[in-house]
Design a protein around this nucleic acid. Structure first.
Lengths: 272, 272
DNA sequence: GACTTGGGTATACACCATACACAGTTTTAA
DNA sequence: TTAAAACTGTGTATGGTGTATACCCAAGTC
């Protein structure tokens, strides 16, 4: 499905869809459907069967209407997918976020990851552009706002955002793909590292991959061996160390922040 | 298509496919096709029409055979996609890579990015697991090997690899999606930042997104305004600064490496 | 020679997104 | 009051998709 995504798409229309800004057009009969109901139905299916289970037919069926009636509300299926992504993102819940930038960015990253782990199908939707919906923009807002007092300029902030969100998405994708493979291959997520190692061992020990072989043997790929959450936090901490260094370089008030830092930043979990 | 990827898949078979290790089975007639030819044909189509143009029928047509004959060589279309990804990756060309870890990681990242920009359809293939093919493993090998003398342990090395490759992929994805949107929306990649800003301005200035509004106004999103390559290099440099800090923390020989560092690491391009 | 194995084919199925024309309903304009 | 216009949902149709199944035939083994 992701193949041609982003190819043909009217930006203005999409923005109207994302923000539900629509001339109601008071002429004809009031529609029985709504973008909200369609998206909700599609999300229910995706939650139950994965993104592959989402077809226009099935969405329409669930709503008790014909397939084609959906097209009165959504121009193309790909647009529906974008709307699903936006809706499933929801507003970030920042109620128990700490006050310092480091804590907030940590919370953001783990919030992203949890979201993707809860709704793995979101990872199957190819992002067709920068965030434009209210929810995704709010996620963006909370990150950027966390960095606003650090002395970083806007370009830095965007860079940090991209690196962090990219990492969260990547880690989630990795974990999800392993969990998905589990049912058939019969290897659970926790055993994956071992299996991966065995798989590679059959093939890698020809001297062309000495470092890979060494790393595999070291057990560094045993993803689930330790706590996956800890591994993730370690990676995030690593990135945030970089951010701290950048802040220092830009002459920002890093020390003040560092003192307030609640987690042992450079410390990495024993398992890794 | 990407929906159910990784769901049902026999790992052993896939490894055999990726490494072309197959009992030739000398009994029946020698096949006129081969995995190589099939993958090559599929890649030609993807290069010309994008991943959406790749169907089993069209691949078969191009090879002058029936659709179903392909299934004698490739169990499922998703497997063919994985094989395409592996084949298109090719072996990394490290001939003019520098010797220091920083230079090598920089070269790796930009090699990744260039690869994805040259073959955007690779980004549309959902990664179904860790790298297992000879080419992708070699990419992994060259990165890990670059870090082997830095004092980082294996877990660190894997973490660095994931962050860096994830960033490269993400940046490429962003750029590709903008370029793809260009034909219809009429906005070129270079104008995207401006358009994005205008789009958001219509909707964002309600006080709920003060930081986003500010960042948009600052022009930080004007992706093409400066040199995209420079922007990317800046992000990579930022990550590598973090790596350097980690090396220092682990007691590795960072100073020696830093001296050999060919690029002004912390320096960021003016455009950003 | 009989038998096994595997390659390529033909057919068929279920499903997909979506283009198009139309019927019914509601509001607006004349 | 009437006619036009706008809008919603339906039915039908088109041209695709991945792949299961059964088949025929060539090539090697016994």
């Amino acid at each position: 499905m992701a193949a041609e995504r982003g190819g043909l798409r009217d930006l203005e229309v999409m923005v109207d869809l994302l923000w539900r800004t629509h001339r109601p057009g008071t002429r004809g009969p009031r529609g029985s459907l709504s973008v909200d109901r369609i998206v909700a139905a599609a999300i229910e299916i995706a939650d139950a069967e994965g993104l592959g289970g989402v077809s226009m037919r099935k969405v329409a069926e669930r709503l008790g209407v014909t397939t084609m009636s959906l097209y009165r509300y959504v121009p193309r299926k790909d647009d529906l997918l974008d709307l699903m992504f936006e809706a499933a993102s929801g507003q970030p819940d920042t109620t128990d976020w700490p006050d310092d930038w480091r804590g907030r960015l940590t919370a953001y990253a783990s919030g992203c990851r949890k979201l993707f782990l809860r709704r793995p199908w979101m990872l199957d939707i190819g992002i067709s552009g920068p965030p434009m919906g209210p929810n995704n923009l709010m996620w963006m807002e909370v990150v950027l706002a966390s960095l606003v007092d650090t002395g970083l300029d806007e370009g830095d902030m965007v860079g940090v955002l991209m690196i962090l969100s990219g990492y969260a998405m990547n880690e989630a994708r990795q974990e999800v793909s392993m969990r998905r493979a589990a049912p058939l291959t019969g290897v659970t997520y926790e055993e994956w590292g071992e299996v991966y190692g065995k798989m590679l061992a059959r093939v890698v020990d020809d001297g062309r991959y000495p470092t890979v072989a060494r790393v595999v043997r070291s057990g560094a790929f045993d993803a689930g061996s330790g706590n996956a959450d800890e591994d993730f936090a370690y990676g995030v901490g690593f990135i945030l160390d970089g951010v701290a260094a950048l802040i220092r370089e830009r002459g920002g008030s890093d020390t003040a922040q560092a003192v307030r830092d609640p987690q042992g930043a450079g410390e990495r979990p024993a398992g890794r």
